[in-house]
Simulated scan of single mutants.
Amino acid sequence: MSTAFSFDRPQASPTFRILTVCTGNICRSPFAEQYLRSELEKRGVVDIRVDSAGTMAQDGQTMPPQAQNLARQYGADPEGHKARYLFEGHVAGSDLVFGMGREHRRAVVSMYPRASRYSFTLREFARLADGVTDLDLAGAAALPLSDTSGRLRAAVAAVASRRGLVDAAMHADDDDVVDPYRLDDSVFAESGRQLVPAADVVVRVLASAAALTAPTGEQ
């Protein structure tokens, strides 16, 4: 179960924080939160925390059964999730923010402009990160293996640097995860098919950055 961010988190925190954002924080963003947490744990990525919030969330609202079922289908744990409203401190206290749609990224950056450097839609990040190599992550590999948060911040910077170099999405909404709220099971299924492959790219890149060794083998 998520707990609140500390608004005064020091800049050099050893914990790397991911925030996922949608509208109500009861379907897409909690599923992304739960799935990313589960998969990163499986890859042994430590010193990392994943939370979620919603731009129009009603604090304490639970995930609808369809959203819970979708999370379980992909091996995530929806138990205990309570929606929370997005505040500036949540964004300022994060190292990587994923909007489920472009409107959520816009809201995040409007709330805290410095977040433009580390905010993406989930599918945008996957598009930018597709094809990232160990060479692209050299900045992460140069840091000590014990500095997981530093390595992951370097990976985020490497992906962000590909903006303008990687082809844009064929259609603008290809960077969004469809909102299934109050729609039928087929839309929830489509939401999962869009979200999970993108999240898998995130996990691959972050896990690689956490584990890479420098060419000399010295840390």
Rank of each mutant, 00 (worst) to 15 (best):
A12M: 13
S191Y: 03
R117Y: 13
L206Y: 00
R163L: 10
C22A: 09
F98W: 15
G99V: 07
A155F: 00
Q58K: 14
R102G: 04
H81L: 08
V201F: 12
L206I: 00
R28I: 03
M100H: 07
E124P: 12
R49F: 06
A168E: 12
T133C: 02
D147K: 10
L128G: 01
R43D: 09
H81G: 11
S161E: 07
M111P: 07
V46G: 03
Q58N: 13
R28P: 05
A12Q: 01
S149K: 03
D185P: 08
A209E: 08
L135V: 14
G131D: 11
E39N: 05
V108G: 02
T213A: 04
R102I: 11
L70E: 15
V97C: 03
A140D: 09
D130K: 03
E88R: 15
N25W: 05
V166D: 06
R49Y: 11
M170L: 11
R162D: 04
F5C: 02
D147R: 07
Y74K: 06
S186T: 10
T20L: 01
S186M: 06
R162S: 09
Q66H: 13
T133Q: 01
A154F: 01
G60S: 14
S13P: 12
I48S: 00
S149V: 11
L137M: 06
D136Y: 01
Y112Q: 12
R37H: 09
G89F: 03
A32G: 12
D136C: 03
L165W: 00
M170W: 08
L183E: 10
Q34L: 11
D200E: 15
R72F: 02
Q61K: 10
L128D: 01
S186G: 05
S116Y: 15
P10A: 14
V109T: 11
D167L: 09
A140G: 10
E41A: 13
Y112T: 13
R43G: 06
M100L: 15
I18A: 04
S110R: 15
G164R: 02
E33R: 13
L19P: 11
P144Q: 08
D134V: 06
H104L: 14
V201G: 13
V108M: 11
A12K: 03
D174C: 02
Q66D: 15
T216M: 07
A53D: 01
V132K: 10
L165A: 08
V196A: 08
D184A: 11
L212Y: 01
A172E: 12
T15R: 00
